[in-house]
Simulated assay, not measured.
Amino acid sequence: MATEIYIVRHGETMFNQLNKVQGWCDSPLTVKGINDLKVTANALSQVHFDNMYSSDLKRAIDTVHLMKDANQVSEIGKIKKLPEFREVFFGSFEGDDIEETWNEVALAAGIGPQTDVTKIINQVGIYEFREATKKADPRHLAENKKELDERMVRAINVLHDLTKNEKRVLIVSHGDFIKTLAIKYWNQSDGLHDIVFPNNGSVTRGIIRDNGDFEIVDYNVNAEDM
Rank of each mutant, 00 (worst) to 15 (best):
N103A: 06
G212F: 14
H193N: 15
G175Y: 06
Q17K: 15
T3E: 01
E150H: 10
K81Y: 04
L159K: 09
A142H: 09
V21P: 10
I207Q: 07
D116C: 13
D225I: 04
E104K: 15
F93N: 05
G110K: 15
K135C: 02
T118A: 13
N220I: 01
K81E: 15
G91I: 02
W102T: 00
R209L: 06
Y6N: 04
N144V: 02
T180Q: 09
F89T: 03
Q46Y: 05
I207G: 03
G201H: 05
I195Q: 09
A155D: 00
S173W: 08
Q17W: 05
R205N: 05
K32L: 07
M67G: 05
D62S: 08
R9E: 00
V73A: 10
T118Q: 14
W24Y: 08
L37E: 08
H160T: 00
A70T: 01
Q188C: 09
D26W: 08
W186D: 07
L148P: 01
F49Y: 09
L170D: 05
G23E: 02
N200W: 04
V153Q: 15
R205L: 00
F89M: 15
A223N: 03
K20D: 01
N144E: 13
E100A: 09
K20H: 07
Q72N: 15
T180C: 10
K81D: 01
K119D: 07
L82H: 03
K119A: 14
V221Y: 05
I76Q: 10
V39G: 07
I207D: 02
A2L: 04
S92A: 15
D62F: 04
V88D: 08
D225L: 14
K68N: 08
T3M: 10
A108P: 13
A223K: 06
P198R: 07
E87R: 11
N157D: 14
D56H: 08
C25M: 09
L57C: 09
G77R: 12
A142F: 09
H10T: 00
K38W: 02
T163V: 13
A132G: 12
D69E: 13
E12H: 09
V117G: 11
K81G: 00
F93C: 05
Q114N: 14
R151F: 05
N187G: 04
I5M: 03
L148I: 01
G125W: 09
R154F: 00
R139M: 04
Q72A: 11
I7G: 08
E131L: 15
N42D: 06
